[in-house]
Amino acid sequence: MTKLAELYSYREMIYSLVRRDLRGRYKGSVLGFLWTFLNPLLQLVVYTMVFSMIMRNNIEKYYLFLFVALVPWGLMNSAMVNGSTCIVGAPDMVKKIYFPREVLPLSNTLSNFVNMFLCFLVVFAVLILTGFGLNFQALLYMPVVMVTEFIMALGIALLTSAVTVYMRDVAYILSIVAMAWQFLTPILYSSDMVPVELLPIFRMNPMTPVIEAYREILYYKAVPDLTTLISAAIFGIIVLAVGELVFSKLQKGFCEEL
């Protein structure tokens, strides 16, 4: 609780770090901030071309099926890949100034979160412009799902950033782990395609209910299952708790290890 109060008093720092990160991301490029929108849009164009012309399958509008899951996966992916280096990447600050160390993974995850939100704007625009449409009642559940995923991503970022300080390899292993995890999550396929005997293991994946909820809302235009939402929330809290526990244990040695 005191941790939360302390983090709240450092909100200005979190805010300015997020702002610096977002502004600095495409710094020096001609189109600048526009890339935030162009990037997902161009990705979508590629998927559309590949999956409706070359690799056709029997899922209707597969490129949308894929895309509404891929955008939220992006947050988890960057929480692992970018998030893991957020402490190692700021040695001067960590070694010289006191601030709650959680600020770094938190602001990193927040800026990834904002980025995901901006991508969703592109998704919404595409869904409306292509005539696919949106269910506004289902859309009311979006924030809940997004917050749940944010909590989970924060937990992962806390965990990976702290461990990376002690073992720099983790940062490289993580990109492979992220890829494997992506394939084990129903992003490219739907959960119906998973063999029944593997389903219990499949349900252990905390990202499964999250991705399913997104797809429910945006692709099937339906209100997500309550059990899906609850299991996602439980997973989120567990991941965050583990992340914070490990982080608070390991952070005491940050100064010496860097």
């Binding site: 008093s9 450092y10 909100r11 200005e12 720092m13 300015s16 610096r20 600050m93 010289k96 100034i97």
Partner: peptide, 27 residues
Amino acid sequence: LELGAGFHPDMTGVENIYINASIFGLG
């Protein structure tokens, strides 16, 4: 202990005051 932590070279003095002061926990 460390002066100018978090200074961003491309930002102006005023902007950096905000960033730097926020690291000291100011609102």
